[in-house]
Computed example of a mutant assay.
Amino acid sequence: MTPRDAADADAGGGRWSDLDRPPLDATALRRALVRRDGLWSGVEVVQRTGSTNADLVAAASAGQAAEGAVLVAEEQTAGRGRLDRRWSAPPRSGLFFSVLLTPDEVPVSRWGWLPLLTGVAVATGLARAAGVDLALKWPNDLLVTVGDEERKAGGILAERAGEDSVVVGVGVNVTLRADELPVPQAGSLALAGAANTDRDPLLRAVLRSLEEWYGRWRAAGGDPGASGLQETYAAGCATLGRRVRAELPGDRSLVGEAVAVDGDGRLVIATEEGVQAPVGAGDIVHLRPA
């Protein structure tokens, strides 16, 4: 949306007239992020779409997007999270974007680290720019503390786009108010007491952090240990040290203490039977506070 489009929309009232939620400045974002020697090749901001992930996967599959393409939506009407969960939020209330990555120097077996890497990058970038602490719930939920309660403020979804690319989508609630929460367990940066909720600098900080972590990981051939990713993820992971229930495919479940994230990015759960079981897919429920 151009500044003129935004002004016209605000003048017309309606769903785009919330002056507490100004539009993103696509021109300024491109000027700040797109560099000849950098990762980001383009930044597009659209007012409304179903899913930035779906749009960018389609563009990449059609050969219409290059590595480093960033697609941002002011509003998503069919946003998706893990396990096909819906993600909805009012217009301009958060950061809803997807990026296209082509990690051809990294073995495909290590691509599973990309959503975890993105979680580290988003948490790090927002901690600096918003002045609020975020934690990671394995594998890729972003948690904030509202009062004394741990709440989900964001999530990450990675999807293959052809044989050689991955689209990683991020959704973060920024200014969502208490009366706008889709479920009581949801949160936002504002509700967590963020010092800054201006989405332009927040998005720049997140994308710069993601560029830094992706470059470090790619330079290490995707090795999570050598790149420092595994250690950093573990340090910020609120799941470790907790008693959890893993709800697994096939209506199975596993209960125990989350003790580690292994070299493949799997959550290792120590059961009461003395078995350490790695979990690579499933839904994790925290059973006790940290």
Rank of each mutant, 00 (worst) to 15 (best):
V34I: 02
G155L: 05
W16C: 08
P107V: 12
A270Q: 04
F97P: 07
D223L: 01
A281S: 13
P224E: 11
V275R: 14
G274W: 11
E149R: 14
Q64H: 14
D262I: 05
V183Q: 00
L202Y: 07
L254A: 02
A130V: 03
S17M: 09
V108F: 08
V46G: 07
W111T: 10
R204Q: 15
T124D: 15
S209F: 01
G236C: 02
V261M: 04
D223K: 04
W213V: 08
M1C: 13
A28W: 06
V122I: 03
R151G: 01
R4A: 15
G169H: 06
E180A: 10
A186F: 04
P184Y: 14
A235W: 03
R204L: 09
L203R: 10
D25R: 13
A9D: 13
R204N: 00
S88G: 04
D25A: 12
G256A: 05
Q64S: 15
A123S: 15
L203A: 06
E44W: 06
L191Y: 04
A7H: 14
D179V: 02
S51V: 03
V170A: 00
G162F: 12
E257W: 05
T271S: 05
E180D: 09
T2P: 13
V259Q: 07
D104P: 06
V244S: 04
D200T: 14
L189W: 09
V167M: 04
G241L: 03
G241Y: 03
D141R: 09
V45H: 00
E247S: 09
L191N: 12
E272R: 03
V170K: 04
G42T: 14
G81E: 01
A234W: 07
W113Y: 07
A258T: 06
D133K: 02
M1Q: 12
V255C: 03
R48N: 04
T271H: 00
T102L: 00
L83T: 10
A66T: 15
G94D: 01
S41N: 13
S41D: 12
A9Q: 10
L19S: 15
G221V: 04
R252G: 15
V285A: 14
G13P: 03
P91I: 00
G12F: 08
A235V: 03
T175W: 02
K137G: 10
R252D: 11
A9P: 05
R288C: 14
L29R: 10
T49C: 14
G280A: 14
L181W: 06
F96Q: 04
V43Y: 01
S98A: 15
W113S: 11
V70T: 11
S227I: 03
E74V: 02
A54Q: 10
D37T: 05
V108N: 00
E67P: 15
A277T: 10
